[in-house]
Design a binder for these strands. Structure first.
Length: 597
RNA sequence: GUGCCCGUAGCUCAACCGGAUAGAGCAUCCGCCUUCUAAGCGGACGGUUGCAGGUUCGAGUCCUGCCGGGCACGCCA
């Protein structure tokens, strides 16, 4: 299964080779001038530069070499030496029918599947997810689907942030606020004298601590820890105690994790995001002592200012990278320690060829340090760990997104706000009375998710973007709901066709709008493979948008049901195929189109 | 201070190893529902790609400098 771009590229490459020129000059791209051609090849320009010849002469010779190619309706030389190619109707129709019967709707697979682990979401204990988690979740989920569809063996891991100093801070803050609980925890720290009543009393008291409490206590504790040295030292000691699994602290921590997870599951589910693995930092904690020993044995660890570090600076670095801090001066494991242990754990349990970390761009240096340390330690091979950084989501003022009160907007609230907008719009469209309440609610969710996800994924991940709910959910123009709406229109037409007992048939060309649509259907593989190579779903989002837009033009220009005979049959197939590819692209982006909206 | 990223239409964003006339959406204006969902389609308007140099037949894209913005720079994660 080869798309037209590559098929023509092969023909061009052969023509270049016939002139003793390198085949890569035959690279074919969609035409920049659709009024002049379907595809173009610019290879004559660099060829002429190298040989000191006139590019138009080379282009003319290439064109002569293509004479008689049945795929081509015309080959023309334009400008300084562009080779303009127009595909023949016969070949285009043939390709259209090929895509129509292909279960993958024209998309190829990778030649050598790899084992890929994608680390995304990154929720933390005690902190409800906020808008900052949105991008990681949306991006990671889409990459997971794209990689999987391309044929790799992929697992997604939430990588729960449930360990470390923050937990020590939190335990301290909770105990301070609940003196009764504090006493119980101290008692439980000596389990040999624990009574049944104490165990039950602990459970009852712990259960009164909600996620909202944790969310309130943590920022205050973190702030105080920065200023108050004694408070900070105590939190560090508690962290060490927790890491030693002192029973009272450990049980309290388990409660924190449980409470948090319930809320996380709800938010992820609402976004259509799910994980194959729900590993946490705490899961690799047990590996750390042996890992530190191993690093020490191999003389990678150095003592520095009371801490133990791995130096990762290399010659030729443009600036000095900080070392990886493996053991803090207080004796506890650090963020980077856990990340390194996670690399080791994944090597042992999954053996990935590639690990992608969908994490905020601001952590680029941190990951560079961890990756270098992992390579030095032999836990990963160079290049197998990749940080997929992304920019921040800003408010309409251009600054990192805040609520009107200046706080951080919780992800759940954001989703609910978007759903409210979707409900309003659906009601305006009169769907409130047409659909059963559950179906209405489900449709509102699908529209809301599409609004959020498309707004995010249509931007290149590396850049920051402005979050503007009114714009995203206006449902007009380049938005998620627009994509869903186009899918819904096709579904509606196909439903009617089925009701009328109409049959689809082979695709034939009768109108320029059909040509355009088929050329776009053919471009799916390029969009998908480029999104895969660059880990950039925005390229796929762009394709989905163009497909929806091109279909809409086709829909306006070419009546489907009112047409007759073979033309109607052909257009029905074209509509079916467009729907299949559009729904597939939406699925890879993490969206789903309802039947009506 | 050092390093990384960014600067494109009034606004939000694209632009496939450097290629023809830099594209979409929103906003503004004009047109299109007695044919399939008008959340739609067509058209108009809108650009010195931050500034100044350089490389090249050709630069939004590569190089240098400057201006402006964001971010990161070991004991939080």
């Amino acid at each position: 299964m080869t798309d037209l771009k590559h098929r023509l590229g092969d023909a061009l490459a052969a023509a270049f080779v016939a002139l003793d020129l390198p085949p890569e000059l035959g690279r074919v791209t969609p035409s920049d001038r659709p009024d002049l051609a379907d595809f173009q090849c610019n290879g004559a320009l660099p060829a002429a530069k190298k040989a000191g010849r006139n590019p138009r002469d080379i282009a003319t010779q290439i064109a002569e070499g293509l004479a008689g190619n049945p795929d081509l309706a015309s080959v023309e030389i334009a400008g300084p030496g562009f080779i303009n190619l127009r595909i023949s109707d016969a070949r285009l129709a043939q390709r259209a029918n090929e895509i129509a019967t292909d279960p993958r709707v024209g998309a190829d697979q990778v030649e050598a599947p790899r084992r890929v682990l994608i680390d995304y979401g990154g929720p933390n204990v005690a902190k409800p997810m906020h808008v900052g988690h949105l991008r990681s979740s949306i991006l990671g989920e889409s990459l997971k689907r794209i990689f999987r569809f391309r044929g790799d063996e992929v697992v997604g891991d939430a990588h729960f942030g449930d360990w470390g100093y923050q937990m020590g801070l939190l335990i301290g803050a909770v105990l301070d606020e609940n003196p009764g609980l504090s006493g119980l925890v101290e008692r439980l720290n000596s389990p040999e004298t624990e009574t049944v009543t104490e165990g039950e009393a602990f459970k009852a008291q712990a259960d009164t601590i909600t996620l909202a409490d944790l969310d309130r206590l943590y920022p205050a504790a973190a702030a105080r820890g920065k200023e108050d040295a004694d408070y900070r030292d105590r939190a560090r000691r508690l962290t060490v105690e927790l890491q030693a699994k002192r029973p009272g602290y450990y049980r309290l921590w388990q409660h924190f994790a449980r409470v948090t997870q319930v809320a996380l599951a709800r938010d992820f589910h609402a976004l259509g995001v799910d994980f194959d693995l729900w590993r946490g930092e705490s899961d690799v904690d047990g590996l750390i002592p042996d890992m530190v020993h191993d690093l020490d044995q191999r003389a990678l660890l150095m003592d520095d200012q009371g801490a133990r570090i791995i130096r990762v600076a290399r010659q030729g670095d443009k600036r000095e990278l900080p070392p990886l801090l493996v053991v803090s001066s207080a004796g506890s494991a650090m963020y980077g320690t856990t990340d390194l242990a996670t690399v080791l754990d994944r090597k042992q349990t999954f053996g990935p060829d590639l690990v992608l970390y969908a994490v905020d761009q601001r952590q680029a240096d941190h990951f560079e340090v961890v990756f270098r340390a992992a390579v030095l330690a032999g836990y990963a091979v160079e290049g197998s760990l990749e940080h997929i950084g992304f920019g921040t989501m800003n408010g309409t003022d251009g600054k990192p997104f805040k609520t009107r009160e200046g706080g951080v907007l919780k992800l759940n609230d954001l989703i609910e706000m978007t759903r409210t907008k979707a409900r309003e719009r659906l009601t305006e469209a009169g769907l409130g009375s047409e659909l059963a309440p559950e179906a209405f609610e489900q449709t509102a969710s699908q529209v809301a998710v599409a609004a959020l996800k498309f707004a995010d994924l249509s931007n290149y991940r590396g850049t920051s973007y402005v979050f503007d709910l009114d714009r995203f959910s206006s449902f007009e123009g380049k938005t998620g709901p627009y994509l869903l709406y186009q899918a819904v229109r096709v579904k509606s037409v196909l439903r009617r066709a089925t009701d009328q007992g109409l049959q689809a048939g082979p695709i034939q060309l009768t109108d320029p709008a059909e040509r355009e649509l088929i050329l776009l259907l053919d471009a799916f593989d390029s969009a998908l493979s480029e999104a895969y190579d660059k880990r950039a779903p925005n390229l796929l989002a762009e394709h989905a948008y163009k497909l929806a837009q091109t279909f809409s033009r086709f829909y306006a220009a070419c009546p489907i049901l009112p047409a007759e005979g073979a033309v109607r049959a052909s257009r029905l197939t074209l509509a079916q195929t467009t729907l299949k590819q559009l729904e597939l692209a939406l699925d890879l982006l993490g969206m789903h189109a309802p039947d009506r909206m």
